[in-house]
Design a binder for these strands. Sequence first.
DNA 1: CTGCACCCTGGGAACGGTAACAATTCGGAG
DNA 2: CTCCGAATTGTTACCGTTCCCAGGGTGCAG
Lengths: 338, 338
Amino acid sequence: MPAATGARPPVMADVAKLAGVSAQTVSRVLNDRPNVSDRARDAVLAAIAQLGYRPNAAARTLVTRRTRTLGVISFDTTLYGPASMLHGIERAAAGHYFVSIVSLPALDRPSVIGAVERLLEQGVDGIIVIAPMKPVVDACGAIDHGVPLVAVGCGTNAPLASVAVDNTAGAALATRFLLGHGHATVHHVAGPRTWLDAQERIAGWRAALRDAAAPVPELVVGDWSSAAGYRIGQAIAADPQVTAVLCGNDHMALGLLRALTEQGRRIPADISVVGFDDIPESGYFLPPLTTVRQDFGALGRHALGVLVALIDGQPAPEVCLRIPPQLVDRASAGPPPR
Amino acid sequence: MPAATGARPPVMADVAKLAGVSAQTVSRVLNDRPNVSDRARDAVLAAIAQLGYRPNAAARTLVTRRTRTLGVISFDTTLYGPASMLHGIERAAAGHYFVSIVSLPALDRPSVIGAVERLLEQGVDGIIVIAPMKPVVDACGAIDHGVPLVAVGCGTNAPLASVAVDNTAGAALATRFLLGHGHATVHHVAGPRTWLDAQERIAGWRAALRDAAAPVPELVVGDWSSAAGYRIGQAIAADPQVTAVLCGNDHMALGLLRALTEQGRRIPADISVVGFDDIPESGYFLPPLTTVRQDFGALGRHALGVLVALIDGQPAPEVCLRIPPQLVDRASAGPPPR
DNA sequence: CTGCACCCTGGGAACGGTAACAATTCGGAG
DNA sequence: CTCCGAATTGTTACCGTTCCCAGGGTGCAG
């Protein structure tokens, strides 16, 4: 309990007076500087506790030029992936940095600039962008003013420090998995082309198909939503040639599952479906979804690690850090019908 | 483009010199104060643009004692509800406040105190808590130090300003809806008792049952997860007496759906299931889920409104603001079997 | 005993703004 | 022509912390 020392919260001078030392010594204790006697340190600590003193971040920032705050820009934290990354970042930052968020009202350049501007105005020490879309990454690369910036989940070709799940490997893994079950080929329902993740997954799927000398079917593009998956699923259900589908994410897979089931196609007996992400609900779809797991939390943690390194003046890692995905085999994929 | 005026970013004095006025006048222009001639204002604005000047938030905070930052404490932003509220808060705050987040590593008192402490250290002007669990709300009520605090989604009985969806009305609505279809009674799979939302939904369900003079079955408690819903669903499938189930949230409903389907119970022919929340995927479950929609975004916006009012010195609203929920009738509920 | 490191300590001067007040200018009225 | 008030502008003193540097002890070697 802080002793009510009048109306205003106690400041360093109050602590110094109570401890019988100078403000400078209090500052040294607070910042774990050497050259402070144990006696002085104990007195200061006691005074701090007694007064309920809390250092003033603004004053400290004014002189050190560091806010110990970093900004996270994201497009839609309502989606599972971004939300998980944000969570990972926040958990990893706890105790070292404060985390300030800004979401993008739209995907155009002005929005991105506005978001960065807003963070800069707040004085963040660094920025993490969770918005793996080409226009956003381009805009960030163009306007970076002074503070370090890292992008999460953007392709290796980006002009920024970045961290990502190895989407290409994941998509290839899933495609090979289906091929291994004996399917002649694998169809792919991709996310929007502006998303780098979508592009990489498409690349991985294509590469795996080519490596196996399997025909490459025409690509179908959705918007990550279950609604899109449902719509596309209705078309797929009408095509008896399709025996295996790799979905760009689990939400679209859910929509697909519903459409196929409604059209009387059994899964996996008639058609195999594999998702991407492994959201917590995937295991309870009908049937439980075979999918590619991404460790979003780890992604967030890594992003923070890279950003902190950059803030501390270390050079940006040459290659974009990649986290390996993992296949979770449940019940929605199997051999093709006889 | 900022003119490179050496190594350091320009400060107010630089702007003043370039514009040929005093720093005070620059300050007045920046803060939209009256009593500045158009000529001076234009000169200042031009200088600001030319220099790429950005006011220093720390210096401003030091003297005004306001950070224009508010903190949001949440337990798990990975869940759809909290994530949506956070999003709503951030969107509504844009342009007025910065938003800093902290997530709770655990649900005990020390964690809550630590989170508040961390935010206070950063100097936030106010705090929003998205963690409608009894222990959290209690802890917040106990330690509130100086800054306004509002809780989202906590019961009316809380000792705090709060904003919530009307869970009681929502649960009653769904229960009456099922009763209206001719079910003798409705079973309820609730969320953990520590969650105030869960408690209120239980109360609404009970009240509706009693009003209709229907028997009140024993309550089943889950943990909001699909896994819990699945486990509970297996038990329910074995009980031929159950013809209608109201789930505490959509995720548990998903697990329930899977368990019931696997046991050969048809939905809604054999059993009706109603969820709560209306997550974006609910419409693509098998069958599409009838559920109670909550407007999480509005909730977040309202919470922000109340907090800002509190910060501006207005008294806390006497009653806890309530947002009415809405029944979304899809395909998982119907009349009981003959 | 003196000198010299070394550790601890404190006194100012920033850091970049805003609040309060004083000063200047200008127009119009007496 | 002088005076007065309003509008505009500048001056000064902080806000609370850390950095730079000087000062005063103490222990050890010369």
